[in-house]
Protein backbone atom coordinates (compact mmCIF):
# COMPACT_ATOMS: atom_id res chain seq x y z
CA UNK A 1 0.00 0.00 0.00
CA UNK A 2 1.35 3.43 -0.88
CA UNK A 3 1.50 6.12 1.76
CA UNK A 4 -1.32 7.94 0.00
CA UNK A 5 -3.49 4.86 0.23
CA UNK A 6 -2.70 4.47 3.91
CA UNK A 7 -3.63 8.09 4.52
CA UNK A 8 -6.87 7.65 2.56
CA UNK A 9 -7.63 4.56 4.64
CA UNK A 10 -7.10 6.55 7.85
CA UNK A 11 -9.60 9.13 6.59
CA UNK A 12 -12.11 6.47 5.52
CA UNK A 13 -11.95 4.72 8.88
CA UNK A 14 -12.20 8.05 10.72
CA UNK A 15 -8.90 7.45 12.50
CA UNK A 16 -7.79 11.04 12.99
CA UNK A 17 -4.77 10.08 15.13
CA UNK A 18 -3.46 7.87 12.37
CA UNK A 19 -4.24 10.60 9.82
CA UNK A 20 -2.19 13.02 11.90
CA UNK A 21 0.77 10.63 12.24
CA UNK A 22 0.83 9.75 8.53
CA UNK A 23 0.48 13.35 7.39
CA UNK A 24 3.34 14.40 9.67
CA UNK A 25 5.54 11.61 8.32
CA UNK A 26 4.81 12.62 4.75
CA UNK A 27 5.53 16.26 5.49
CA UNK A 28 8.86 15.27 7.06
CA UNK A 29 9.67 13.16 4.01
CA UNK A 30 9.06 16.22 1.84
CA UNK A 31 6.12 14.73 -0.02
CA UNK A 32 4.39 17.34 -2.19
CA UNK A 33 1.79 18.95 0.13
CA UNK A 34 -0.78 19.23 -2.65
CA UNK A 35 -0.47 15.54 -3.33
CA UNK A 36 -0.98 14.83 0.37
CA UNK A 37 -4.24 16.76 0.21
CA UNK A 38 -5.53 15.55 -3.14
CA UNK A 39 -4.28 11.98 -3.35
CA UNK A 40 -4.43 11.18 0.34
CA UNK A 41 -6.96 13.20 2.28
CA UNK A 42 -9.55 14.20 -0.32
CA UNK A 43 -9.22 10.86 -2.10
CA UNK A 44 -10.26 9.21 1.16
CA UNK A 45 -13.15 11.57 1.62
CA UNK A 46 -14.38 10.86 -1.90
CA UNK A 47 -14.71 7.21 -0.96
CA UNK A 48 -16.58 8.22 2.20
CA UNK A 49 -19.02 10.29 0.15
CA UNK A 50 -19.77 7.36 -2.13
CA UNK A 51 -20.26 4.95 0.77
CA UNK A 52 -22.43 7.43 2.64
CA UNK A 53 -24.64 7.87 -0.36
CA UNK A 54 -24.92 4.11 -0.79
CA UNK A 55 -26.02 3.74 2.84
CA UNK A 56 -22.85 1.85 3.80
CA UNK A 57 -21.60 4.62 6.08
CA UNK A 58 -23.55 6.77 8.52
CA UNK A 59 -23.53 10.34 9.76
CA UNK A 60 -21.30 9.85 12.83
CA UNK A 61 -18.75 7.97 10.72
CA UNK A 62 -18.76 10.69 8.08
CA UNK A 63 -18.18 13.25 10.83
CA UNK A 64 -15.18 11.30 12.12
CA UNK A 65 -13.79 11.00 8.60
CA UNK A 66 -14.23 14.72 8.04
CA UNK A 67 -12.39 15.35 11.30
CA UNK A 68 -9.56 13.05 10.18
CA UNK A 69 -9.35 14.90 6.88
CA UNK A 70 -9.29 18.35 8.43
CA UNK A 71 -6.66 17.24 10.96
CA UNK A 72 -4.43 16.41 7.99
CA UNK A 73 -5.32 19.52 6.00
CA UNK A 74 -4.48 21.79 8.95
CA UNK A 75 -0.99 20.28 9.12
CA UNK A 76 -0.34 20.74 5.42
CA UNK A 77 -1.97 24.13 4.95
CA UNK A 78 0.97 26.22 6.25
CA UNK A 79 3.13 24.69 3.50
CA UNK A 80 1.03 25.81 0.58
CA UNK A 81 -0.49 29.07 -0.48
CA UNK A 82 -4.27 29.20 -0.55
CA UNK A 83 -4.28 29.61 -4.32
CA UNK A 84 -2.29 26.41 -4.85
CA UNK A 85 -5.08 24.33 -3.43
CA UNK A 86 -7.31 23.52 -6.33
CA UNK A 87 -10.79 24.13 -5.08
CA UNK A 88 -13.61 22.21 -6.66
CA UNK A 89 -15.52 25.48 -6.56
CA UNK A 90 -16.92 28.04 -4.18
CA UNK A 91 -20.28 27.75 -2.44
CA UNK A 92 -22.09 30.28 -0.25
CA UNK A 93 -24.50 28.52 2.05
CA UNK A 94 -27.09 29.50 4.66
CA UNK A 95 -30.50 28.82 6.21
CA UNK A 96 -33.24 31.22 5.08
CA UNK A 97 -34.62 34.14 7.02
CA UNK A 98 -36.88 33.14 9.90
CA UNK A 99 -35.43 29.66 10.12
CA UNK A 100 -32.96 28.65 12.81
CA UNK A 101 -32.27 25.05 11.81
CA UNK A 102 -28.63 24.31 11.15
CA UNK A 103 -28.00 20.56 11.39
CA UNK A 104 -28.76 19.74 7.76
CA UNK A 105 -26.93 22.79 6.47
CA UNK A 106 -23.88 21.91 8.57
CA UNK A 107 -23.83 18.38 7.20
CA UNK A 108 -23.98 19.72 3.65
CA UNK A 109 -21.16 22.17 4.43
CA UNK A 110 -19.06 19.37 5.88
CA UNK A 111 -19.66 17.15 2.87
CA UNK A 112 -18.91 19.93 0.36
CA UNK A 113 -15.67 20.87 2.10
CA UNK A 114 -14.73 17.24 2.27
CA UNK A 115 -14.91 16.81 -1.47
CA UNK A 116 -12.89 19.96 -2.08
CA UNK A 117 -15.31 22.88 -2.28
CA UNK A 118 -14.56 26.02 -0.36
CA UNK A 119 -17.69 26.95 1.55
CA UNK A 120 -18.70 30.29 3.02
CA UNK A 121 -21.30 29.54 5.69
CA UNK A 122 -23.57 32.51 6.44
CA UNK A 123 -25.26 30.67 9.32
CA UNK A 124 -28.98 30.62 10.07
CA UNK A 125 -31.79 33.19 9.70
CA UNK A 126 -29.99 34.72 6.71
CA UNK A 127 -31.67 37.66 4.99
CA UNK A 128 -31.84 37.75 1.19
CA UNK A 129 -29.68 40.89 1.24
CA UNK A 130 -26.96 39.02 3.14
CA UNK A 131 -26.86 36.38 0.40
CA UNK A 132 -26.58 39.15 -2.20
CA UNK A 133 -23.71 40.83 -0.35
CA UNK A 134 -21.92 37.49 0.00
CA UNK A 135 -22.28 36.81 -3.72
CA UNK A 136 -20.81 40.22 -4.56
CA UNK A 137 -17.96 39.72 -2.12
CA UNK A 138 -17.04 36.07 -2.72
CA UNK A 139 -18.19 35.39 -6.30
CA UNK A 140 -19.33 31.81 -5.65
CA UNK A 141 -20.45 29.55 -8.49
CA UNK A 142 -23.21 28.20 -6.30
CA UNK A 143 -25.40 29.35 -3.43
CA UNK A 144 -27.07 26.74 -1.24
CA UNK A 145 -30.21 27.63 0.70
CA UNK A 146 -31.69 25.51 3.46
CA UNK A 147 -35.16 25.64 5.03
CA UNK A 148 -36.69 23.19 7.50
CA UNK A 149 -40.14 24.73 7.77
CA UNK A 150 -42.96 24.90 5.28
CA UNK A 151 -43.42 28.53 6.26
CA UNK A 152 -39.82 29.64 5.80
CA UNK A 153 -39.37 27.57 2.65
CA UNK A 154 -41.25 30.32 0.81
CA UNK A 155 -38.46 32.78 1.62
CA UNK A 156 -36.30 30.90 -0.87
CA UNK A 157 -38.36 32.39 -3.66
CA UNK A 158 -37.63 35.91 -2.37
CA UNK A 159 -33.91 35.27 -2.70
CA UNK A 160 -34.37 34.17 -6.32
CA UNK A 161 -36.47 37.28 -7.04
CA UNK A 162 -33.86 39.61 -5.57
CA UNK A 163 -31.10 37.84 -7.50
CA UNK A 164 -33.01 38.64 -10.68
CA UNK A 165 -33.56 42.26 -9.68
CA UNK A 166 -29.86 42.66 -8.96
CA UNK A 167 -28.94 41.10 -12.30
CA UNK A 168 -27.10 38.29 -10.54
CA UNK A 169 -29.34 35.37 -11.39
CA UNK A 170 -27.21 34.11 -14.28
CA UNK A 171 -24.00 34.56 -12.27
CA UNK A 172 -24.75 31.84 -9.72
CA UNK A 173 -26.46 28.48 -9.58
CA UNK A 174 -28.99 28.20 -6.76
CA UNK A 175 -29.50 24.91 -4.96
CA UNK A 176 -32.02 24.25 -2.22
CA UNK A 177 -32.65 21.61 0.42
CA UNK A 178 -34.31 20.81 3.75
CA UNK A 179 -37.03 18.49 5.01
CA UNK A 180 -40.09 20.13 3.35
CA UNK A 181 -38.29 20.96 0.10
CA UNK A 182 -38.99 18.82 -2.96
CA UNK A 183 -37.86 18.69 -6.57
CA UNK A 184 -41.32 19.92 -7.44
CA UNK A 185 -40.90 23.03 -5.30
CA UNK A 186 -37.43 23.55 -6.76
CA UNK A 187 -38.83 23.56 -10.28
CA UNK A 188 -41.74 25.76 -9.22
CA UNK A 189 -39.55 28.57 -7.86
CA UNK A 190 -36.97 28.19 -10.61
CA UNK A 191 -33.94 27.08 -8.57
CA UNK A 192 -31.19 25.15 -10.34
CA UNK A 193 -31.11 22.05 -8.21
CA UNK A 194 -32.42 20.16 -5.22
CA UNK A 195 -30.72 17.43 -3.22
CA UNK A 196 -32.24 14.96 -0.81
CA UNK A 197 -29.23 14.59 1.47
CA UNK A 198 -25.70 15.87 2.03
CA UNK A 199 -24.01 13.35 -0.24
CA UNK A 200 -26.41 14.13 -3.05
CA UNK A 201 -25.79 17.85 -2.50
CA UNK A 202 -22.07 17.28 -3.06
CA UNK A 203 -22.78 15.39 -6.29
CA UNK A 204 -25.17 18.10 -7.40
CA UNK A 205 -22.56 20.82 -6.84
CA UNK A 206 -19.96 18.84 -8.77
CA UNK A 207 -22.40 18.49 -11.67
CA UNK A 208 -23.28 22.19 -11.61
CA UNK A 209 -19.67 23.40 -11.76
CA UNK A 210 -18.49 20.55 -14.01
Amino acid sequence: MTDFNRLSEAVISGDFRQAEVLTKQMVENKVDPLQIINEGLIAGMNVVAVRFKAGDMFVPEVMMSAKAMSTGVELVKPLVTESDITSAGKVVIGTVKGDMHDIGKNLVTMMLESVGFSVIDLGVDVKAETFIEAIKEHHPQIIGISALLTTTMLNMKDILDILKEEGLRDKVKVIIGGAPVTQEFCTQIGADGYADDAAEAADLCKRLVG
Partner: peptide, 8 residues
Protein backbone atom coordinates in the same frame (compact mmCIF):
# COMPACT_ATOMS: atom_id res chain seq x y z
CA UNK B 1 -35.28 15.94 19.71
CA UNK B 2 -32.12 16.32 17.65
CA UNK B 3 -30.21 13.56 15.85
CA UNK B 4 -28.01 11.38 17.99
CA UNK B 5 -25.78 10.78 14.97
CA UNK B 6 -24.70 14.42 15.05
CA UNK B 7 -24.01 14.54 18.79
CA UNK B 8 -24.21 11.53 21.05
Amino acid sequence: IKPLGVNN
